[in-house]
Amino acid sequence: MTVTKLSEHVSGGTPHRVLQPADWARPVGYSNGMEARGRTVFVGGQIGWTGQCKFEAHDLPGQVRQTLENIVAILREAGAGPEHITTMTWYVLDRKKYSASLKEIGAAYKATIGRHFPAMAVVEVSGLVEDEALVEIQATAVVPD
Rank of each mutant, 00 (worst) to 15 (best):
Thr4Tyr: 06
Lys5Ser: 09
Val10Lys: 12
Val18Tyr: 12
Leu19Trp: 12
Leu19Gln: 12
Pro21Tyr: 00
Pro21Leu: 01
Ala22Met: 09
Tyr30Gly: 07
Glu35Ile: 08
Ala36Met: 06
Arg37His: 03
Gly38Gln: 02
Thr40Glu: 11
Phe42Arg: 15
Phe42Ile: 15
Val43Asn: 04
Val43Leu: 07
Ile47Trp: 05
Cys53Asp: 15
Glu56Thr: 14
Ala57Gly: 07
His58Ile: 12
Asp59His: 05
Pro61Asn: 10
Gln63Ile: 06
Gln63Arg: 06
Thr67Cys: 03
Leu68Ser: 00
Asn70Tyr: 01
Ile71Val: 04
Glu77Ser: 13
Glu77Ala: 11
Ala78Ser: 14
Ala80Tyr: 03
Gly81Thr: 14
Pro82Glu: 07
Pro82Met: 06
Ile85Phe: 04
Ile85Arg: 01
Trp90Tyr: 08
Leu93Lys: 12
Asp94Trp: 09
Arg95Trp: 13
Lys97Val: 15
Tyr98Gly: 07
Tyr98Ser: 10
Ser99Gly: 12
Ala100Val: 02
Ser101Val: 02
Ala107Phe: 08
Ala107Asn: 12
Ala111Phe: 11
Ala111Cys: 11
Thr112Ala: 01
His116Arg: 05
Ala119Trp: 02
Ser126Leu: 14
Glu130Gly: 05
Leu134Tyr: 02
Leu134Lys: 03
Leu134Arg: 02
Val135Gly: 05
Ile137Met: 00
Ile137Asn: 00
Gln138Trp: 06
Ala141Trp: 07
Val143Leu: 05
Pro144Arg: 06
Asp145Trp: 14
Asp145Gly: 15
